[in-house]
Simulated assay, not measured.
Amino acid sequence: KQVTIVLTFLYFIQYINHSAFDMGHYFQRAMLANGVVCALRLHQRVPQFRLTRVHFSMLLQEDSAHYLIYSLIFLTCHPITIALMPVAVFALLHASSFTRQMIDMHGSNSYPFARKLINHVAKHQATLFRFVALNEVLILPTVVAMLIMGRASVFAPFLYYKFVHYRYLSTRNPYSRVIFYELRMSAEVLSRNPNCPSILSSSLLKGITFVSKLAPPYQQQQPEQQQ
């Protein structure tokens, strides 16, 4: 995860310097590093691999599998800056957790400055998860736009839709469902605003209906299943 953070940082340096070649280089490496980490975490979560439908269904319930698919999608795409945001944020959260474990081995009062930074990240963890979920939603229209401009594979929008599908059904991370709900509520409030033009109001309602039809059915698990 530390490697992913460094590669993302180098990508933004090249972005500021308008170096397109190096941008693509660091973008692909960041996605590759994230994919490797996700594959390792997925192996830890589901160590015994079997070529069965039940096993693949079990794999696709894991968040690590979702972001392994995510990395594979963008490895073959033109660099999309917004696509690095979820990868970088998750890398930051995991790196902070790992660093805390390391410094705890040196005593509870060791490295106070590092602890202050880690505590600051932990304090805003929910906000970061919401930020990631919002990015996951906004990337879909971005991928469609990239396809129109010829900078993404024709399969990218369909594969990314499946990624969003799995994120929406995630049993460990509810933020995707929360963001979709909040965006829908905001769109409905705006469409009912008397100052909203009728064409925009109609478009919003049609968009809500269309997205709602694409949303997969979600059943809340019982407490004993979640543990």
Rank of each mutant, 00 (worst) to 15 (best):
C77K: 03
H78E: 06
H78Q: 06
P79E: 01
I80W: 04
I80Q: 07
T81N: 08
T81G: 11
I82H: 06
I82E: 07
I82G: 01
A83T: 03
A83R: 01
L84D: 00
L84S: 03
M85N: 13
M85V: 13
P86Q: 03
P86M: 01
P86Y: 02
P86F: 01
V87I: 14
V87F: 04
V87K: 02
V87Q: 03
A88F: 12
A88D: 00
V89T: 10
V89N: 03
V89K: 05
V89W: 01
A91I: 03
L92W: 06
L92V: 13
L93Q: 11
L93N: 02
L93D: 03
H94W: 08
H94F: 06
S97M: 05
Q101V: 04
M102G: 07
I103Q: 04
D104N: 15
H106A: 13
G107I: 04
S108L: 07
S108R: 10
S108Y: 05
S108K: 05
S110W: 02
S110D: 10
Y111T: 08
F113H: 15
F113A: 15
A114I: 14
R115D: 02
K116P: 00
K116Q: 10
K116I: 00
K116E: 09
L117T: 03
I118Y: 00
I118H: 01
I118T: 01
N119G: 14
H120C: 06
H120L: 05
V121C: 04
V121H: 05
A122L: 11
A122F: 09
A122E: 11
Q125R: 15
Q125W: 11
T127M: 14
F129C: 14
F129Q: 08
F129R: 13
R130I: 02
F131N: 13
F131P: 03
F131D: 07
V132F: 02
A133C: 04
A133L: 03
A133N: 04
A133K: 05
A133S: 10
L134K: 07
N135E: 10
E136F: 09
E136I: 14
E136S: 13
E136A: 08
E136K: 12
I139R: 02
I139S: 03
I139L: 15
L140D: 03
P141G: 13
P141C: 11
T142A: 09
T142S: 08
V143Q: 00
V144E: 08
V144F: 08
A145R: 12
A145Y: 11
A145C: 09
A145G: 08
A145W: 09
M146L: 15
M146R: 14
M146Y: 14
L147V: 14
L147C: 11
L147S: 06
L147T: 07
L147I: 01
L147A: 12
I148A: 10
